[in-house]
Structures are given as C-alpha cells and as structure tokens.
Amino acid sequence: MHKPQGYPDVSAYLIVPDAAAVLDFCAAAFNADRLRVIARDGGGILHAECRIGDSVVMMGEMPDGPDAHLHLYLADAEAAFDRAVAAGAEIVQPMQSQDDGDLRGGVRDTSGTTWWIARQEEA
C-alpha cells in the first residue's frame, strides 16, 4: 500500500514553532486524534500528525515558520469556534454569514496558524 491505512491522498503540512502546542490545540478545539509523533534528536518534534474528521494534518517544527491557514468544514462550526477561543486562540474574524453560503469565522492559535471554521448554511 502506498500510504498508511485511513490516510487521505492529500494532507495539509504545517511548519510551526511548537508542534506539541498545535496538537493540544487541535485536540481541544476540533476533537482531533493524535496519530504519529516523531521526536527530534536533542528535543522537540521532527514530525507529528493528527486527524480532524476525515482529514490528516501533518506538521514539523521550525522556530520562524511561515504563516499557515487551514479551512475546516465542521458540522457544529459554532461549537468548534468557541472551543478554539477557549483553548487560547485569538479571533481573526467572528462567525458570520458569508456571500458564498458559508457561516465562517477565523481564529489564530498560539503558534500563529489561522483556522477558518465553517459550515454551509441552510438554503
């Protein structure tokens, strides 16, 4: 098999300053399941993965990594948004109806990743 069982063909890969903090945030905000965590010789995390719904988010550590943005469609986007804020995220955009038919808001976690949390609104 060309990939681990249950993994999608495409996964987001984040470069973050603190992968452990991002894993904890994902668990608290999005009920993510931690998958693999590979430690770096001398401390820190070389590579880590978590599952959010049917997707896998991968990450590695770099102190000054680039800004990253992820978009999530979740059945209870409002609750996930509230959990993200409770887990320490800064509100970038409050949850609001968008022209594309989504209810969407954005939060930035303590590692600098922006998470756009959305669901389709009823027609």
Rank of each mutant, 00 (worst) to 15 (best):
H71K: 07
G105D: 03
A79C: 04
R40H: 14
S97P: 06
G65Y: 08
S97K: 09
I38G: 00
V85F: 00
D18C: 08
G101Q: 08
D41M: 08
A21L: 12
N31E: 15
L23I: 12
L35R: 08
D54A: 15
D99V: 11
V85L: 04
E78P: 02
A75C: 01
V57N: 00
D100P: 00
V56I: 15
V37K: 13
Y73Q: 10
T113S: 02
L74Q: 03
A68P: 02
R36I: 14
G60E: 08
V107W: 02
S11P: 03
D67I: 05
L35C: 07
A29E: 08
L46Q: 14
E121F: 00
D64Q: 13
V92Y: 00
L72W: 13
M62H: 14
V92S: 09
G60Y: 04
R83L: 06
D76E: 10
M62R: 13
G101H: 01
E61K: 11
D18G: 10
R108S: 09
D109T: 03
G88M: 06
D67H: 10
F30W: 08
V22Q: 09
M62T: 10
L35A: 04
F30T: 09
R34T: 15
R34A: 12
Q93L: 12
L74H: 06
G88N: 06
D82S: 12
A86G: 11
D76K: 04
A19K: 08
S97T: 09
A68M: 11
F81S: 04
I45H: 07
M59N: 04
Q98I: 02
I117S: 04
Q120R: 14
A75H: 10
I38E: 15
A28V: 00
E122V: 12
D102N: 12
P17A: 11
Q98R: 14
R40Y: 03
D33M: 10
R83W: 03
D67T: 11
E61R: 05
S55H: 14
P66N: 08
G106N: 04
I117F: 02
N31Y: 07
E90V: 12
I45V: 15
A87N: 03
F81G: 03
G88E: 03
A87P: 04
A19C: 10
R83F: 00
Q98V: 03
Q120D: 11
S111A: 14
S55F: 08
D18P: 05
R83V: 02
F81E: 01
I52S: 01
